[in-house]
Design a protein around this nucleic acid. Structure first.
Lengths: 168, 168
DNA sequence: AGCAAATCATCAGCACAACTGACGATCAGC
DNA sequence: GCTGATCGTCAGTTGTGCTGATGATTTGCT
């Protein structure tokens, strides 16, 4: 449906598709653009499951790290504990997670992944891999590994208090 | 004020600072984390100027690309045109930008950078470079160039219609 | 044992940005 | 000239992050 003529029809054919060169060296701008782009692939990919990207993250942490409290989960994914409530509500209503009290600290929950939760996490992971592959289409396998590695380095570094930079 | 004893006082000293290993390979998660981290450096850096990160982007585009309409500006930085209004309002009230009508299309503006606007953009750029340097502290010069290059590749690719993937 | 301070989950409320839909003003094609 | 499209604007909705307060519970101190 979208032929080249359609593109030419707009007033600023390719300028709209390009990013301002001056901002292409601003890491913050690039991260904002690419993060938005990744969401554009991942969010629709999980839509068939009725799952939010963040909920996938939470399911994944529970699947790999075992039962945790909401507070711990919030710390893992750098989310606010008050925001966490709503997301866990959704997962609980969908039957993917159960709120069970921690016997040794009855203030906190031990969020339990249900069998359906574990199943949907696996399926969601497959969909995510497909979406990521599409998103990263422009990069070679080597480039993808490089990018992942560099981002992981940065992601781990941020959030660490500056005091650790001058660790004794 | 924050000695090591303060850190040890919390229940989970280093676990809270780490990211879930299972998500360290999810590009979307990494981008979300690093984008948030970058904002944590850049937003406070521009605070003394009373400037938003996005406003810095807009000033930069105007400085490098010349007068544009709000719509064109919105296309450049992938921002909604209705959201643009408020940001330009702020820049205009601060005296950094003037809304002048485009003589050849009196529906649209030609946003003019004032001398103060040009000055504050330069200062903001300096502050941004410092903030980025701090944010990227963990990476070598080579790694920074790699990261910028890979992100730029991705950022340019997203938003481009899929039809261009099979460009003749 | 008992009291004070801290912590967990929750809720109400505020702030902010994205987005939709509508509107008047203006332009372009026919 | 008409019709349809575009630009900037506004009103309203949504989603997310954060603050502050609350009740239940735990921990530390004495």
């Amino acid at each position: 449906m979208a032929h080249l003529t359609d593109i030419k029809a707009s007033s600023a054919p390719e300028a709209e598709r390009t990013l301002p060169p001056a901002l292409l060296e601003r890491i913050g701008f690039l991260l904002a653009m690419t993060k938005g782009g990744a969401e554009g692939f991942c969010t629709p990919a999980l839509a068939p499951l009725g799952l939010h990207v963040r909920q996938f993250g939470l399911l994944t942490v529970l699947a790999t790290e075992g039962p945790r409290s909401q507070q711990e989960l919030a710390d893992w994914v750098r989310m606010d504990r008050t925001t966490m409530v709503g997301f866990i509500d959704g997962l609980e209503e969908a039957g993917y997670v159960r709120r069970e009290r921690n016997p040794s600290d009855r203030r906190a929950y031990l969020l339990q992944l249900t069998p359906e939760g574990r199943k949907v996490q696996k399926r969601a992971e497959g969909l995510m891999l497909e979406a990521e592959d599409e998103f990263l289409a422009e990069l070679s396998e080597t480039e993808r590994e490089q990018l992942l590695g560099l981002l992981a380095k940065l992601a781990i570094a941020v959030g660490r208090p500056p005091s650790e930079k001058a660790a004794p």
